[in-house]
Each structure stands twice: as structure tokens, then as C-alpha cells.
Amino acid sequence: MLVTTVVIVGGTSALFMSDFGVTNMMAKMSVPIVATALLLDFLLLPPLLLFLEKIFPYHRKKPIGLSQGEYIAHSPPSPSTK
């Protein structure tokens, strides 16, 4: 997500230089919106998930489209919990 946002923001920032209203507006609006989206996904969504878990405890279900058991073998190591 971070990499995608950096590339999108970096690429579309060029449009700030545009003399044309539509293109310029695209940069002025989309760059902060994409950056804010990342901010909210990193700083708002996780706390919300944690609070939500307290109200509606998660029950395991069969996932759609994601591997059971295989993906975890290649995922990053478990973090050390406090």
C-alpha cells in the first residue's frame, strides 16, 4: 500500500504543473485523497478493527480465494508480542 501510494503520488505530482484546469484539478485532488486514504488505512482502520473485535468477536470462517496454510508459510515472521 505504501509503495503503491508513493508511486501514484510521485507520478501524478507532475500534473501539478499542468496549465489545464481538469488535469491540474486531478493532481490537486487525487494526490491528497490517495495520501489521506493511506493515512486512514494505517492509523484509523487498525484501531477500529481492534475495537470491533471487542464488540463482535471474530469467528473463523472459510476464506474466499485465499490459501489455507500455504500463504502463511511465506508470510513474514510472527511479530514478538509485548
Binding site: 500500500m1 503503491t4 485523497i33 486514504a37 487498525p46 478493527l49 471474530y58 508470510s75 511479530p79 508480542t81
Partner: peptide, 30 residues
């Protein structure tokens, strides 16, 4: 467009929860 980030975050979070991780571990791995 911004749905992109949310979908990737929630998909992976749910995946780890289904793997049996607790909420905090799932978020860290996500």
C-alpha cells in the same frame, strides 16, 4: 480508487484471523 487500500488491508487481515492469529498479530502481519 481508494477502496484499493482498504480491500488489500481487510483481505489480508481476515486471512490472518482465519489462520488463527489474534487481532493484534493479524494487524501486525497485515
Amino acid at each position: 480508487l481508494v477502496v484499493d487500500d482498504t480491500v488489500h488491508f481487510l483481505t489480508k487481515y481476515l486471512f490472518y484471523r482465519q489462520q488463527g492469529e489474534n487481532a493484534e498479530e493479524a494487524i501486525l502481519k497485515t
